[in-house]
């Protein structure tokens, strides 16, 4: 038996992640403890940024981001579930074509797709409004520049991130299990709740986590589609860094986002067995 070189192979990645993932997190925390509006890292640390983070109304953007992320996760899950079931059930050329068609937009920049959504929804001369006006002489309003538009954008962008993990999850449900439950007289609702959801849970968890976290950092949806109707936390952070030139405050808000993310991600990652999902 040869010596097991696993650790040696892991080493480059571990070093890279320590340098470019873990160390930057430490630096952000350090910055967040600096006095307001300072640009250097010193030992003069304190919690004043966190105190003003809660006192000065930065809670609202964070709430909006959390709410948007939660709603998007829920809605994409509801939309992706039947889609995943259908795509899994029907294999063959059509199903693979549809799967490829759904995957393709992920690789088109989200700034392009969101811009497309905004010209589609634009009032008056927008694609939808203009077409309806020209063909049927119908005038319609727009949801552009509202919170709803930002939410629609988030759902649109993140749907594939929910669907593909969910497809892996749905594939983990043995077909005979559903048959057996049906034969024993279970209703469709009971089959969904007692059999399908628990068995597909790993996929749902990965998809949900990915969607929620990506939404928490999402900014372009609110900027391009939401107008001034909603300010998300990443927009506030950017504003602190760029216009206010208050890096420590921006860093403190960033740390709050990291804390929320970590509180969700760490327990979930401990529970998910990616090995089992990927090794089919």
């Amino acid at each position: 038996m040869r010596r097991n070189p696993g650790l040696w192979y892991a080493l480059p990645l571990i070093v890279a992640m320590l340098l470019f993932f873990a160390a930057p997190m430490v630096i952000v925390v350090w910055y967040s403890l600096m006095p307001p509006r300072s640009f250097a890292l010193t030992t003069d640390i304190g919690l004043q940024n966190y105190r003003s983070a809660f006192a000065d109304g930065y809670g609202r953007p964070l709430m909006w981001s959390l709410l948007g992320a939660a709603l998007t996760t829920l809605i994409t899950a509801v939309l992706a579930w039947p889609t995943a079931k259908i795509l899994h059930r029907h294999t063959g050329r059509w199903a693979s074509l549809v799967t490829a068609l759904i995957a393709l937009p992920i690789f088109i920049s989200e700034s392009v797709r969101l811009f497309g959504l905004s010209v589609f929804l634009m009032p008056g001369g927008g694609i939808l409004a203009g077409t309806l006006n020209a063909l049927f002489d119908v005038q319609i309003g727009t949801i552009l520049n509202t919170r709803l538009a930002a939410l629609v954008g988030m759902i649109y962008i993140h749907f594939p991130f929910m669907l593909f993990p969910l497809l892996l999850g749905v594939a983990m449900i043995p077909a005979d299990r559903i048959e057996a439950a049906r034969d024993l007289g279970a209703s469709s609702w009971a089959v969904l709740r007692e059999v399908e959801l628990p068995l597909a849970a790993p996929g749902l968890l990965v998809g949900g986590l990915l969607t929620f976290v990506l939404c928490l950092g999402a900014n372009a949806e609110a900027a391009i589609l939401g107008g001034r109707a909603v300010t998300v936390i990443t927009a506030t952070i950017e504003q602190r860094f760029n216009y206010a030139q208050d890096w420590p405050m921006g860093a403190a808000l960033t740390v709050l986002v990291i804390v929320v993310t970590a509180a969700l991600v760490f327990p979930a990652v401990r529970r998910i067995d990616l090995n089992r999902m990927l090794r089919r």
């Binding site: 992640m17 993932f21 990506l214 950092g217 860093a251 986002v257 991600v265």
Partner: peptide, 21 residues
């Protein structure tokens, strides 16, 4: 488990952390 952590992190946060570093 540790290696997948960056995937589950908000991307602007990763970028910001790197900018500060």
């Amino acid at each position: 488990r540790l290696i997948v952590l960056p995937i589950f992190f908000p991307q602007p946060v990763l970028g910001l952390a790197l900018l500060l570093s």
